[in-house]
Computed example of a mutant assay.
Amino acid sequence: MEAPSFFVGVVGNIISVLMFLSPVGTFWRIVKNKSTEEFESLPYICTLLNSSLWTYYGITKPGSYLVATVNGFGIVVEIIYISLFLIFAPPRMRGKTAILAGILDVGFLAAAVLVTHLALHGDMRIDAIGFLGAGLNIIMYCSPLAAMRTVVATKSAEYMPFLLSFFMFLNGGVWTLYAVLEQDWFLGVPNGAGFVLGTIQLVLYAIYRPAKHVSVDLEDGWPQSEHLLPSSSPEDNKNEEWSISRQK
């Protein structure tokens, strides 16, 4: 089963890279508008912690370099996203982001690495990191729940990026298949949960997808449209009236 699992792992890496890059459009909007608007930072904070632990897992477990490489790429990308949040978020969101990133991505990660590296050895260390990674993987997939709640409350999916939801759905499905082939349930259980949650997000997006903005005239309530023909000048109107009077 080594050849099929390797092929699925490569496909999983490609999809994971696309998942990490999928919020680029969102952050381009944030930079362009110089505001994070109603977007949440928690998914990116959780993804950074998740990528860090899975990189550690991939380095520690023999033969898991596919897991380590793609998550190492994820670390770089998520750091950029969180940095942009800290630059463009309003003060309250900036403080919340800084506190959560400090607790989870610095404090918790450092404690997990130190404890597992110093206190555990061999398979026990790998299992401990796997349990932590599995739990945090589920948290990462659940982190858009806040955005999903906003979608239901506002009946609009504007602040739940479609590409992120779509690639989380694909990522969960492919890595679940890889885990089955490799019989690695530390990867299988959380990614199976991610596949289900990604499906729910896509269903919500289909129900509450953002409507196209239409300019509306406030006086009569009808959508405004551009004139298809150039408007007549006052001189043209006078000529038209004179022509009608002659016909009479």
Score class of each variant (00 low, 15 high):
205 Y>C: 01
50 N>S: 10
189 V>H: 05
188 G>M: 02
9 G>Q: 05
108 F>H: 02
52 S>Y: 09
214 V>I: 14
64 S>P: 06
89 A>M: 02
5 S>I: 10
137 N>W: 06
180 V>L: 00
147 A>D: 06
148 M>G: 06
219 E>M: 10
179 A>N: 14
65 Y>P: 13
138 I>W: 01
208 Y>Q: 00
220 D>Q: 03
151 V>E: 08
37 E>H: 05
41 S>G: 05
124 M>W: 03
48 L>Q: 08
181 L>Q: 00
61 K>N: 03
12 G>Q: 12
224 Q>E: 15
160 M>H: 01
227 H>M: 14
36 T>D: 03
3 A>F: 13
76 V>N: 10
202 L>S: 13
166 F>E: 07
27 F>W: 09
158 E>M: 11
41 S>A: 09
225 S>L: 06
140 M>G: 08
138 I>H: 05
3 A>G: 10
104 L>F: 13
94 R>H: 09
125 R>S: 02
211 A>E: 15
158 E>D: 10
200 I>E: 05
82 I>V: 05
41 S>Y: 12
93 M>K: 15
22 S>M: 07
232 S>F: 15
160 M>I: 10
104 L>Y: 07
29 R>K: 12
106 V>I: 11
156 S>R: 02
67 V>M: 05
45 I>M: 05
59 I>L: 15
65 Y>G: 12
120 L>M: 03
185 W>G: 02
239 N>I: 07
5 S>M: 05
131 F>E: 04
19 M>G: 10
4 P>N: 14
230 P>T: 04
52 S>G: 02
129 I>V: 11
118 L>C: 13
200 I>G: 00
223 P>W: 04
198 G>F: 02
16 S>M: 04
241 E>F: 14
20 F>D: 02
235 E>W: 05
145 L>C: 03
186 F>W: 08
113 V>C: 03
1 M>C: 07
25 G>W: 12
6 F>A: 12
157 A>T: 09
202 L>M: 08
218 L>K: 06
172 G>K: 00
76 V>L: 10
198 G>M: 08
94 R>E: 11
161 P>V: 00
214 V>H: 07
107 G>W: 00
213 H>R: 13
10 V>K: 06
142 C>D: 07
75 I>Q: 03
10 V>T: 09
110 A>S: 13
168 M>Y: 12
86 L>C: 11
155 K>Q: 03
19 M>H: 06
84 L>R: 13
